[in-house]
Amino acid sequence: MQLIKNLYNYRELLKSNIKKEIRGKYKGSFLGILWSFVNPLLMVAVYAIVFPYIMRVQTDNYLLYLITGIIPWNFFTMVINQGMITVRMNAGIIKKVYFPREILPISVASSGLVNFFISCLIILLFCLFSGAGLSWYLVFVPFLALIQYFLTLGIVFALSAINIYIKDTEYLVQFFLNLLFYATPILYQATLFPEKIRWLLYLNPMSQMVDAYRAVFIYHQLPEFSGLLYLIGITIIIFFVGLFIFRKLEKGFAEEV
């Protein structure tokens, strides 16, 4: 509660910080903010060539399948990669003034969310041109995005704080993100796994997340209910554990960074 009040008082800082995150990342490059959209498209292009032709993966409408996986995944990794270092990057102002430190991870996650919503236009374009079409189930997209927002925010809270004390976090997380990418049905279909061990794949909240997005974007149906419930439960746990860790560690930020 105190946190919400604090954030409200500092809303101007939050706002300008989010803007800075969105604009700052590609500052100085020719395409600027367009890179946020070109990047996933290039990734999609690579996979769309590699997998059907070289690995001989057969999936209906593979391009759309890919893009509905990669854009949410991109949202996830972008927020984690930038969020993890945000406290360290802002060492200058942390040492100089007091402000609610939570603003830093929140701005990164929020800028990611804004980016994601804009990227959704790309998904919609693909939906239209690949023949999948649009449906009213799309109203669930903001809801799903919000779940993902809190999930990643929780992770970033924890990681950005731990990273101040143990610098290895950055490198370990890089590895885990790579691992998780292949442990999420982004490039392949979950049915590739035998039934017996498939549940293992779905312990990964991002698998549930990607499946839910696909349900509304491609298949025009409600996300699977039990999966969604699991996702929400895990998000709540991760969010509060992350926040708890952040608050425990934030008192030492000014001395440790």
Binding site: N9, Y10, R11, E12, L13, K15, S16, G92, I93, K95, K96, V97, F99
Partner: peptide, 27 residues
Amino acid sequence: LELGAGFHDDFTGRENIYFNASIFGLT
């Protein structure tokens, strides 16, 4: 304690006033 927290060199003085003051918690 230290002046100019959050100043960014590439922004104008006016923009920096906004940025700096928002760090102090102003809307």
